[in-house]
Write a protein that binds this DNA or RNA. Structure first.
Lengths: 180, 180, 180, 180
DNA sequence: CATGAATGAGTTTTCATTCAT
DNA sequence: AATGAATGAAAACTCATTCAT
């Protein structure tokens, strides 16, 4: 069920409930039995994604090398999110309308990333003039950007390098071409 | 006509043709006389925006200080685009579906930005391991990100700093807090 | 079961089977085990009501004062029916579509009321130019009317007086203000 | 348009918009262009009926023989209303929910009937212990009753006689068999 | 040319009914 | 026997598009 729903999400938030149901191999009614509203279904799917993301972040929270963990995380987040257009859309929508059920998960993510981000700052791995909100927004924008160049891994790597270098403290050794 | 249409665009690509027509002070029929399809109207509006952008870029093409001109351009592009959600959506869609009429303008923009970008690279103002495509994608993502933090100018400035710093050559002096 | 179903009926004939089942504390499937169709369930509920009504009427059939018994009956019928919108709806539907299972009960009621009605006519308590069908229709209409003025007992009494007076034989002493 | 819509109304308030549109020979969209909601369409149809009724009543307002005019009116009202199931349903709903657009027309009808009713009372043609509200409710109930016996004119006449007789003052000469 | 009424396919949502467990 | 998840037809409503005036 959930798996099929995610298939829906990849089609964007405009797919019709009929299509989703069809893709999931069930009738529309079944969808509505589980989610009272299209909105609810959407929120559920997105929340689930974000939840998984949170799990990952929380795992890295106490890594011995926060800086490395942080950059690894970004890499993975963008890599994964790129395949899920909906996650991106949702992240942006969540920022605008935090009243939904997504709000709670969003806060969890915010806290988890914030913790790792703070530790990474302390070790001097990232610049310290940036807030978590701004970081998350940047990440989201980067995901959007990634969807453009689609499958070109080399191009993606070059773009990530820009973001990574920009996140380093001004005085730190550059990161650039060393990655991937 | 064009002016009113842009007003539509700010409402997102979901506004109905009736609303657009109403805002433009004409009947729907008139809209269809000029644009065979909603899609066509959308493309026209977006193309227009991109066209203006091209003009700007082409003006800067032969600037005496390509590096400064380049960063100025980025700043202005992001600043403007942020107010036009549709432009961003369109840019992303254009990347995915270059068959549309946007394609041509996209190429023009590509060429214009490419020229300035190349000169900026030569002067050592920007890293040289990045393609124009990647740059444009990054810019678009940044615009998306900007829409998040909405009106917070300080936050926007910090985010731009990240991008700008990331674009500098690894060895260049950092740009950071010096801006805005 | 029956008790819960009646609870449903008071919500009008538009309540969903799921709601009925829920109110009855059973699953929908169970409902369908006992009644092949929503229509059938509805008929069953209504038939039950009419059946109770029949019992009452039949009790009065041999009353020593048929006239008084008749008017008492009317009073009670209207009083009760007013609280059961569904009964009224059903009665009207029954008149239109007598093919249903309600038909039989309807006939029983028809016969029972008819008997008392005839005896009341003989004692000169009611006009004799009215058929049982017409009487029942009038009653039903009166019930509908009663639902309008809702809880205003005084208004209801005045309306009943009109009906009662109209039912008296032309030459009989008027009934009017003597009631309630 | 209006004519076709009334055709709809005769099918009860449950007919689908598609059916109404079909009966009217137009597309659903056309219906929605004129009436934003099914509810609105319904209100419009009913209001129209009530409005016509009002016109009739207001014509009779200053009749030389208020009593005769009053009974004529009742006769005609019931006769007409009987063919319009919807009017009846609507009247009842209007009583319950006077917030709708029907409210205004309802008041107009109330006033017009009230005026004639008052004059008829003064000439001793009707009992004076009945309010206009009660009269209207009774009328509506009578209409409902009439729909039962459907086309049987004789039966209808007998039922009307009951109502008419009930409305006479207790001491007045009975009306009964003299009508129709 | 401009207009906006008409169209009808498509979207979300509800609900009577069935059937595997 | 009971359950309630699944089904899909149908209803209200929207909107891109056409076309008579």
């Amino acid at each position: 069920m959930r798996a099929a729903d995610e298939a829906f999400a990849s089609g964007g938030p405009t797919v019709s409930m009929d299509e989703i149901a069809g893709a999931a191999g069930v009738g529309v009614g079944t969808l509505y039995r589980h989610f009272p509203t299209k909105e609810a279904l959407f929120v559920a799917v997105v929340s689930h994604h974000l939840s998984l993301l949170c799990d990952e972040v929380e795992t890295l929270r106490d890594a011995s090398d926060p800086g490395a963990a942080f950059y690894d995380l970004l890499d993975r987040m963008v890599q994964e999110a790129t395949d899920k257009r909906d996650l991106i859309d949702a992240l942006s929508r969540a920022g605008i309308d935090p009243s939904d059920g997504v709000g709670e998960v969003k806060e969890r993510l915010h806290a988890a990333v914030g913790a790792l981000f703070a530790r990474a700052k302390q070790t001097g791995a990232v610049r310290d003039d940036l807030g978590v909100d701004e970081l998350l927004s940047l990440l989201m924008g980067t995901c959007t950007a990634m969807c453009q160049v689609d499958a070109d891994q080399a191009a993606r790597a070059r773009m990530m390098a820009v973001i990574f270098d920009g996140l380093r403290p001004p005085t730190a050794p550059r990161h650039s071409a060393s990655r991937r």
